[in-house]
Design a protein around this nucleic acid. Structure first.
Lengths: 229, 229
DNA sequence: CTTGTTATTATTCAAATGAATAATTAACAT
DNA sequence: ATGTTAATTATTCATTTGAATAATAACAAG
């Protein structure tokens, strides 16, 4: 719209003077990642544009290449950064749950799985962006996207499948696996779509708060997982 | 990979002679839509490329413009064509169901909703492409994507919500609405992801046939919809 | 101090891409 | 016959874009 020049900071070339403000180890690198995350979220991989990312991050475009290599590499790094965090949280949650009791409820398990990403979404604009990024990634058929998802998430998903399988001995494990896929679909979609969901509820606008919405989702999914095979 | 020239058919310019084979009203137009559908499915809106679509469809690139206008318009038309069909099938299925009985089972309703797209996916490569396209569209945050989805699907979704609400009087209607959103998420994701789902099932590869998989999904979702509020 | 390495910018390159225009030919109406 | 409209191609245009290179400054090591 506005004919903005989108020019990066007007710093002169060359290594910048060491900032004495402390604690800024590779500050720009992170800034790039943050803005890339946002860009990928709203525009998708193809739609995002390196010039704009660079400019918003306040760096020269070539710096992206310097740190990350290609656009695809940048995307991967974005994804790994938060994805790893997420997977980590899930592991921790499961550990805790199993510590407390050998047979947690299905609801507890589902909740433990969903909560980390839920929190991430509402923790910051970047958290929300990551959720969107992920939703898009799941819709992409490319082999590369698939590998990335697997790399980041497979281990934790498998652990949850095992745990669920133990809590639901009536349901064969391969059915649990399939249901876990349903679960992922429902929650990703939902998380990404929240806010638009109101449209379906005609007049009486859904006044669910986020927490209540999460509860609803957990209840729904737990019931599905429990369904007699 | 191969340095293919991707050149369109070598027809001379000018209006083509009327084909006497009968029934080819605007043959090329359809060919464009078919190939666009495939392209959008694998590459997404931004990733798809008009030159390639034209070449695969065997037409000159300018013909796309002639028929559809811009790239965005082409996308919309793709979406409306099949989306309308789908929505239509859903309406018909619901009509039939309500004719037979005033209180169909939740399973029947869910099945009636899902089956048309399921069939579409397996009817042809283009049907599958449309499913993928749709999954991607749902992950896009753009206002435009949202409007399109609403235009094509809202009416039928609302009818199903009403029907479900009648069959499940214990569950408040706005909770049904929300659960319907979960349902859409789960089935879209699943439909698009089928085939990769096997990866989660460790050794014992999911030998679910497509029909059995649909049954599984219906059972899962019906249980979720029924869950006590 | 000199020299090499790291982090950063300015500038250039080459390709891809959506859009637009002009040309051409068949069908159709009068 | 003839002029108009419809359908199609060939060609050109302007911009965007990811990538690459060259220049520059700070810092670290000897």
């Amino acid at each position: 719209m506005v004919e903005q020049k989108l020019k990066a900071k007007n710093r002169s070339p060359g290594r910048p003077p060491r900032a004495d403000t402390f604690g800024n180890a590779s500050d720009l690198r992170d800034s790039i990642l943050d803005h890339a995350e946002l860009a990928f979220a709203v525009a998708g991989f193809e739609g995002a544009n390196l010039r704009e990312i660079a400019s918003l991050a306040g760096v020269n475009q070539a710096l992206i290449r310097y740190y990350f290599g290609s656009k695809a590499d940048l995307f991967d790094e974005c994804f790994r950064r938060r994805g790893g965090l997420l997977a980590g949280h899930r592991h921790v949650n499961l550990d805790r749950l199993l510590e407390i009791s050998e047979n947690p409820s299905v609801e507890d398990l589902v909740y433990a799985y969903l909560k980390p990403q839920w929190d991430m979404k509402y923790s910051s604009p970047n958290g929300a962006a990551f959720v969107a990024m992920q939703a898009r990634l799941h819709a992409e058929p490319e082999e590369h996207a698939l590998r990335l998802r697997r790399e980041v998430y497979d281990a934790s998903v498998k652990r949850y499948i095992s745990a669920l399988s133990q809590v639901l001995p009536q349901v064969p494990k391969d059915i649990i696996s399939v249901r876990m896929a349903f679960l992922v679909g429902a929650y990703l979609f939902m998380l990404n779509d929240l806010g638009r969901i109101g449209d379906l509820t005609e007049g009486h606008l859904t006044s669910f708060g986020k927490d209540e919405m999460l509860d609803q989702l957990v209840r729904f999914l737990a019931a599905g997982l429990r369904a007699p095979a």
